[in-house]
Design a protein around this nucleic acid. Structure first.
Lengths: 226, 226
DNA sequence: TCAAAAGTGTTAAGTTTACACCCATGA
DNA sequence: TCATGGGTGTAAACTTAACACTTTTGA
């Protein structure tokens, strides 16, 4: 029972595309797929899919993320909408890009294998169809801004992590070297990055203190800033 | 000639909604409309419309902006996509919000009058249908970030303006008082805000120097930062 | 002559950067 | 014992914030 007001207008497919970042082997990676279906069979793209009836657009992105990695309950951030008429040669599709940071250990790689998924160094990106390159670059630009302002790096790590790991993430995202002492000083000022009494012995002989992120403390610190 | 791949998915109306800011009487204002059509007849919303076949989404926003203000060639910035299933009670509509800053003097008010348009202080916003309040708040938040990093204030002013006018815009956007000396010092460091030899006598007896924005100088200064 | 807006510098506080050595341990 | 990554402080440079008086001129 739709008014004429609406029906004189065209309708389009609405897709979501996910820029899923992980951190592995000291490298910031993004999840791609090699398409085994048209259009652009054989080419590379982000993981994406169509928004369904009664499905929130953000939910659709959650669904894609879960289908391809098994990961649920990770914050997704909208990167932008992409709506030029010829993005997709098969049909008019307006696509909304979302980015997520995931802990690679939690990814179920058999799931993404079903979709010809693979992880690639974000600084060594093949060319992507549907203008997905632009989405990745925009996501990375946004991530760089975020990492300077809000704690997001820990999302790429297990619940407990060393400061060196966290620093390497910052370095990978910003693509530049960071001074260790200055970095640790900055982290020390973040009440929500808490030292635990656990020690990680896997990356050094001496062992490194394990830290964890405390969401409640973060919210407190936000309020304190006002 | 669309593959099954597409056609098993639903299609939605895609709308654009414009957050059009102006600066008038020392106040940051946004253009609203009182709807004289369903849904939400009589209620307030942003100016918006549906994306058409073969029309780029950004172009659609340009079109709406021009229809309602007569203004062309103003940069539009995407604020975000809004896609929850029940945003619009009449049909499933995914809406993409854009913001623009316009010089009120260039607005053709007879055009927006045709659409029941009116300007309202952004800090005295009535409640808006379709979740348009959220769009305005997000746009304002983005504008606050922008104004600290990139020159955008001048877009709300005529080509020549005084530093007091520019300062008042910053104050209106940030909703806080700015120290005059510090503000002028900061502007003096911006090579792309150039003093002209013209004097404005309308706002003070003494007269104030008129400045103008130089896009080329801005681009130069960006390069110089790298 | 006075009200009203334009214009102008200095100092203190805070933030950011640069920089080098000792520590603990397993191999 | 030594190679490897973990851990620590200080000083200089820079940026930001606070602050008050003089100038011009039309009414």
């Amino acid at each position: 029972m739709e008014a004429v007001y609406y029906s004189q207008n065209p309708r389009f497919y609405v897709a979501v595309d996910c820029i899923i970042f992980c951190f592995e082997d000291g490298v910031l990676k993004v999840l791609l797929q090699q398409r085994d279906f048209e259009p652009f069979r054989g080419e590379h793209t982000l993981m994406g899919g169509f928004v369904q009836e009664n499905e929130d657009v953000t939910q659709a992105a959650q669904r894609i993320l879960e289908e391809r990695t098994g990961i649920l309950y990770v914050p997704l951030e909208q990167v932008g909408a992409f709506g030029s008429p010829n993005r997709d040669p098969g049909a008019r599709v307006v696509s909304i890009a979302y980015m997520a940071l995931v802990d690679k250990h939690l990814c179920n790689d058999s799931l993404n294998a079903k979709h010809n998924g693979f992880w690639v160094n974000v600084y060594d990106l093949p060319s992507l169809s549907f203008g997905h390159d632009e989405m990745v670059h925009k996501a990375l630009a946004r991530l760089r801004i975020q990492i300077g302002k809000t704690p997001v790096g820990f999302q790429l790590l297990p619940p407990m992590f060393t400061l060196s790991q966290l620093q390497h993430i910052h370095e990978a995202i910003l693509n530049e070297h960071i001074d260790k002492r200055n970095f640790r000083k900055r982290v020390a000022d973040m009440s929500y990055i808490e030292k635990t009494d656990k020690i990680d012995k896997t990356t050094s002989k001496r062992g490194a203190a394990l830290y964890r992120y405390n969401q409640l403390e973060y919210e407190k610190s936000l309020k304190a800033k006002l």
